[in-house]
Design a protein around this nucleic acid. Structure first.
Lengths: 214, 214
DNA sequence: GAGTTTTCTTGATCTTGGTCAAGGAAAACC
DNA sequence: GGTTTTCCTTGACCAAGATCAAGAAAACTC
């Protein structure tokens, strides 16, 4: 993935309070007043939406190097989702006012870039959810994983690499159930596009796989 | 709907070129280089995604008073979707560089707020697409339409108003087919929550309707 | 106002993906 | 090594919506 965060602006470097949180902790709840914004130095957060019917959907993961709730600095709102620590975290917790008070043109430019990228990412996600089916999402995901980055250009026609995480987690990230993921993998294997052996994946041909989006 | 745009910052007021476009015109295509950003003075745009399989999905409408492609000012990218004029438009077309050159702290603050709000809106949309079913989306939509704004507070228990657009368009806005919309309307009528007569809608009880989200 | 066109409704059917339940495989733990 | 737990796979079934096709109802035209 593209790294979202450019270097921290100097004006912000001293601010906030460091916190260490272990996996499973809930950082904030949906609808809590949004007083803080967070920078994830290490670990990982997950933003999750709770539906009325008790369901829980992952809006997005926040990996190390990324920000959380930064949009709320500039728009009055409560947290629109709940944040759960999915991997032990070291993060910097900064109060809204502290950032706004210390905001210079460098800080503005920094957040403008950050927010703009977030918008594009969100757009991408909407795109995935609306026009792509499960199969297409999975294919895109595999291609994005391929070591010869972004889809094996040139002479690489065989790519072999291990899954970066548990299949269950991949399924969640792609917004589907593990069962569906499993079935599509099987389907892609049957079509001779992939070979899966335990946690190792072999793409037979990236070009053919790319063409196999429904 | 909440108006997205606060007043234009003075530094921007003189910039750009006014254009008049009629409904049906394509403002830019998906993947075009994103050199311009637009302010919609009057009319309406629709941002649409084209899928590989030829489908076209509405990402969002851009009503009068809103901006289009403003996130791309601060992130290098091509247009991620195509923009189609859905109602005759008067818009201001401003070149990227022109804005960036004239950017002062007021302009930054303006766009920070704009982008932050856009992020929240996109989040909302993802929420709708993932955890809300067709029925729930429709109910939300009707409630948002109710004249005694945002859901008939206080003593209003009966609301009667005309549909603001064709049902076909409403369906598209809500990301479903007209058939599905029609069926859900029928269902809500059968449950005595709505009465629909031609293009006039009567909410029997906003409170009950609110509670009727699956 | 009769005819034409567009929009809306409705039914029948299909596709997609989720849910539930049961096995199997692999890893972790004594 | 054997047991337990976790993870993955598979099958049978279900539900939500989309699609297709055909009427019904409005809206425009002349």
């Amino acid at each position: 993935m593209d790294s979202l965060g450019s270097a921290l602006p100097v004006a912000l470097s001293g601010l906030g309070r460091r916190r260490q949180l272990e996996a499973g902790t809930i950082l904030f709840l949906q609808e809590d007043p949004a007083s803080y914004c967070f920078y994830v130095e290490a670990g990982e957060l997950s933003l999750r939406l709770l539906s009325a019917s008790g369901h829980e959907v992952e809006l997005t993961k926040i990996p190390a190097g990324d920000w959380c709730a930064e949009a709320l600095l500039f728009a009055e709102s409560t947290y629109p989702a709940q944040a759960v620590v999915t991997k032990d975290c070291r993060l910097v917790q900064i109060h809204r006012d502290e950032i706004l008070k210390n905001s210079d043109s460098e800080v503005s430019a920094f957040f403008l870039r950050l927010l703009a990228k977030k918008c594009l990412r969100l757009n991408k996600r909407i795109e995935q959810l609306t026009i792509l089916g499960a199969r297409e999402r999975i294919v895109q995901y595999i291609l994005s994983l391929c070591p010869a980055h972004n889809g094996c250009p040139g002479k690489f026609s065989h790519c072999r690499f291990p899954f970066p995480k548990k299949k269950r987690e991949i399924a969640q990230e792609l917004g589907m159930t593990p069962e569906t993921l499993s079935r599509v993998f099987r389907q892609l294997e049957d079509e001779n596009l992939l070979e899966i052996e335990g946690s190792t994946l072999q793409v037979v041909s990236c070009a053919r796989l790319r063409g196999a989006a429904t």
